[in-house]
Structure formats: structure tokens, C-alpha cells
Design a protein around this nucleic acid. Structure first.
Lengths: 147, 147
DNA sequence: TGAAAACAAAGCGAAATACTCGGATTAATC
DNA sequence: GATTAATCCGAGTATTTCGCTTTGTTTTCA
């Protein structure tokens, strides 16, 4: 019951892109080094994110990736669903003897509620918010260090 | 990002116990048959639930399991945490270069929020509620069938 | 005493996860 | 144009986790 590394790597990489202020694309190798992620693996993930329309690739020399949309318009839910698949927590065994009939299965509602709660939690966080929080925390840390 | 079968089997078995009205213990083999679960595997899970204090075992012939507490006092969150482990969705790589320092990691908050949302969702459902919903749905289904 | 149940620990095959590798494509630069 | 630097793509692989079985022990009722 953990998110796979795909999701967490992906989110971190997307955060990296959001924090990367320059207009030039950010290349996988750089992201991987700065955020300590396996480069070739991250490459795969970036391709998935591109196919999902979350990032845009710039091919060839001096290429890399940029966010396909403003960071304000990208939620963690999107990123995670692309890399993790739908967040269904359990499939009620349709036709199996879970409780005779799918429509009498009280559990289906429970799993659905949980899915909604989880999805909602991730939908409320945009990349922009995350980047801001990150910046704030870093500033705080620097301040404490100075004292 | 699914719950393991352990959790779902466990929840179903616990629901079985809640629905099992007779005062005699309900044995694993019966539960397994009625709810179509692998018997020997379920045996393991029941042992875990017992160690966690959710069920009481009656050993020897004519033994089996009964709920250790009234169904109204057992939440799905308890059952799931026993069988699934804590619902932490990701561990922020402490010390690793996630974002320099753990305390500057904005992501930790996100994962923690998600965990809370999920846990809360499961905490709100007791076995008693589940049993009631189940009974209602069954009654509805029977009614529709009669019509 | 024998049968029936929970208990315990180990083992095991299949599937998923987390990668790596080799080469093909694309594009900027010399 | 050649070179180089990047993404793209498909296949391959090692490791872990999952789901379940097996074997045997202990407990208790009849």
C-alpha cells in the first residue's frame, strides 16, 4: 500500500521542472543528478508524462523538458494517475462470491469512498503550490541556520 | 497502488464474523467456503487479526473465531492497518537528496495529508455499519427480484 | 484416544517493480 | 555535412513482493 517509486520520482521531477525558472528546457540527466534519481529510469517516466500531455519534450542537442502547462494548472493527482494508474484501491470481485452479487456488496462503496478521499487530497495540490511551499521551507531553514 | 488481497480478504472475513449471529465460533474453513477465500491463506490472516486483538480464537475441535469486541467498536481502519501495515504512501528519503533536507521537503506534507485522508475514510466505517449496509442491500436486491 | 480445529514456520511460483541497455531519431553546432 | 547531444523506444533483467501451499505441532472436544 505504497505509491510506487514511479509516482514519487515523477512528482519530484515535475517539481524540479516547476522550480526550474529559466526558459531553457531541463534535461533528464540534470534532473536526475540534482534530485538523485536514476537517469535512464526517469527517462521512461518523462516519456509517459509527455504522452499524457503534462510535459513537452524538446528533442536534439540542448533539448530537455518543460511543463506543458503553467504549474498552477497541474495537480499532483494528474501526475500520480499517469504513473500509478487509476487509484482504485480494490476491485470488488464481480461475479465472485464476495457477497453473492456485486450490487449487494457493501464494500464497493467503501473502496469508492476511499478512492475519492485520496484523489481529492491529491487534486487539491498544484505544482505551483508545491513549489511555493518548497521555497518557503527552504527560506525558513536558511533563516534558522543563520541564527 | 492497490490494497493487497490481505486487507480485502481480512475485511471480508471480519464482515463474515459480524454477520455470523450465532454465539458459536465461526471456523476458518467455513468462512473460506462461504466467501470464496483461500482457506489456508485466510488462516494466516486470522492469526494476525488475533494477535492484534481484533478477534478471539477458540482452539480445538468445534473451535473457530469470534469478534473480540462488538462490531460497532471495530473500524475498517484497524483491520486494514493490521494486515496492510501503516498507510504511509511514501517515505521521504531522509538524508537523501530529495530536496536537500527532510525539513525542507514540501512533499512530506503532501504524503502525510493523503495518509490522513485515507485513514480517516476507513476510520469512519465500523463493522456494524458495514453489516447493516450489507443487509439493506441484500433486502433491496431481494425486493427487486420479487418485482 | 481420535478427530478437528487453530497455530507456526518455512517454502515457492508468479507477478510486479525498478531498473539497465542498445540502438534509432532528432536537432543544434562546428 | 559531420559531429555531438539530447530524446525516443523496445527489449531485457535482477530483485522484491505477493499470494498461497505445505508440513507439522498444539489444543480441545467427543
Amino acid at each position: 500500500m505504497k505509491l510506487s517509486t514511479r509516482s514519487t520520482y515523477g512528482v519530484r521531477a515535475m517539481l524540479a521542472l516547476a522550480l526550474h525558472q529559466r526558459p531553457t528546457p531541463f534535461m533528464v540527466k540534470e534532473i536526475a543528478e540534482q534530485y538523485d534519481l536514476p537517469a535512464t529510469y526517469l527517462e521512461q517516466l518523462m516519456t509517459l508524462l509527455r504522452k499524457a500531455g503534462l510535459v513537452t519534450a524538446v528533442r536534439g542537442a540542448h533539448g530537455g523538458y518543460i511543463l506543458a502547462r503553467p504549474a498552477v494548472e497541474i495537480t499532483l493527482a494528474e501526475i500520480i494517475e499517469v504513473l500509478e494508474g487509476p487509484l482504485r484501491l480494490a476491485d470488488c470481485p464481480a461475479g465472485a462470491a464476495c457477497c453473492g452479487h456485486p450490487d449487494t456488496c457493501a464494500l464497493a462503496d467503501v473502496w469508492e469512498d476511499a478512492r475519492r478521499a485520496l484523489t481529492n487530497s491529491f487534486q487539491q495540490v498544484t505544482l505551483a503550490q508545491l513549489a511555493e511551499r518548497h521555497a518557503n521551507k527552504q527560506a525558513d531553514a536558511a533563516l534558522n541556520y543563520a541564527i
